[in-house]
Write a protein that binds this DNA or RNA. Sequence first.
DNA 1: ACTAATTTTGTAACGATTACAAAGATGTTA
DNA 2: TAACATCTTTGTAATCGTTACAAAATTAGT
Lengths: 152, 152
Amino acid sequence: MCKENHYSDRQLTEMIHKGGLRPSAQRIAVLSFVANAKRHPTADEIYGVLSDKFPSLSKTTVYNSLHALVEVGLIRELEIESGNRHYDLAPQPPHSHFVCRTCGKIVDMSMPEGVSEITTPGFQIDCIDVYFKGICPECLNKKQRQNSKLNN
Amino acid sequence: MCKENHYSDRQLTEMIHKGGLRPSAQRIAVLSFVANAKRHPTADEIYGVLSDKFPSLSKTTVYNSLHALVEVGLIRELEIESGNRHYDLAPQPPHSHFVCRTCGKIVDMSMPEGVSEITTPGFQIDCIDVYFKGICPECLNKKQRQNSKLNN
DNA sequence: ACTAATTTTGTAACGATTACAAAGATGTTA
DNA sequence: TAACATCTTTGTAATCGTTACAAAATTAGT
């Protein structure tokens, strides 16, 4: 349920290279951020963090990099909320996502039994996205504490 | 796999009323379109069709209506592609969606066995979205025909 | 080092959505 | 039915994520 992976720049460089892309410093940084971030970031979040490291970084570059990395299959787009694409490292065991409707946090969950193997006659299924929406434990706790406060 | 429901204006009016909203002509029309459309429409599509019937219709009204109807739980937002929200009637047996990556068509599918009953300790799960992405039978056919043409 | 191809960058444009305020319609109460 | 408060609609302007484009910079291969 938690991602502890740490991808070294060396690994990331090789991944980008294998994808047929040039491993520019910006691309490595973008991929690194997506790969090692706990929460699946948006282009804007990536830009915000990386522009410290690359003062000249352009938002277009972030978008370019993300597109290129999606193109070669290194990362995946999560369509969680219209108007805000989130990105996730692609070559992982298939998993689903929980989205907290209170704090917006996205948590990796295991993929429900059997879903990955589903086929439907006539349809070619390339990928499966499962999104659980609700309230995460932290927000549930906060809520409870607020409620008990009211009852005192 | 196919929706044949036909909701009368009388039914829709009552649904809106029960939700605590005023059943204005525009709202009824919006809800009717979402309820009876085969493909889950976007705000823009709804506006395009309804502006014939309501020459004075404003796009803002479509958005307002959709928001209000979502608010009271009559319709649901599908987050299929960032930058284009689709809408679906809410009070249906839970189902999943197939999205064709070629023609963009959205097809209702049955909900995979057991997914609706999933619980996770500590999390409050309010709803579950399952999206299959791939190529629909029609587009697969077209592709095949093109390929066989090339081989002649 | 030279050349071609790729990548970055900044600016401008785009499209979906939202904010806002005025005008219009509706429901309620007397 | 008249008066009033409330809810809806409408149009315009603004916002925000994303894309288009062209010039400058970088990289890879000869």
